[in-house]
């Protein structure tokens, strides 16, 4: 689309069919929601890590088999992964221009999704085996 300065097209006509504005705040709402959730979850996570730090393999397994630590950890992972995916997306959009941007966004989503799945899988495996 060429924006001719002397164009007679109205601003509305120029933005029409470029996508709905309805979901435009989805990202902002999600990063606010996850950051709010991460305030208590981070404190819970640090509490858990301080507990796990001095344990051997069996101690770690026994702790993560209990429901409360496992659920806090899973909630921390879920909120944290969503939060970091959106955060990195805004950094990519700010600093990477041109065709590299699409690849960077794709890499960000894949990295976050795989890392999140790996963490969730490992936590559930500890809890249930």
């Amino acid at each position: 689309m060429v924006d001719h300065p002397a164009s007679l097209r109205t601003p509305l006509a120029r933005v029409r069919f470029l996508g709905s504005a309805r979901s435009g705040t989805r990202e902002a709402r999600l990063i606010h929601l996850t950051s709010l959730a991460l305030i208590p979850l981070t404190l819970g996570f640090v509490w858990l890590v301080l507990d796990l730090l001095h344990m051997d393999y069996n101690g770690v397994r026994e702790t993560l088999e209990r429901p409360l630590p496992a659920i806090v950890l899973l909630a921390f992972i879920l909120a944290g992964i969503l939060h970091m995916e959106i955060g990195m997306r805004s950094i990519v959009v700010d600093y990477i221009h041109g065709p590299a941007r699409a690849w960077a966004l794709l890499a960000n989503t894949c990295f976050s999704a795989l890392l999140g799945l790996a963490c969730v899988y490992a936590t559930l495996r500890i809890a249930f085996t």
Binding site: Y57, G80, I91
Partner: peptide, 20 residues
């Protein structure tokens, strides 16, 4: 710090995968 945590989650993943 956000970028550091982004990379740092690898450490959490390593911890959990090795413990599992």
């Amino acid at each position: 710090s956000g970028c550091a945590l982004y990379i740092g989650v690898l450490l959490l993943a390593w911890f959990l995968i090795s413990a599992s």
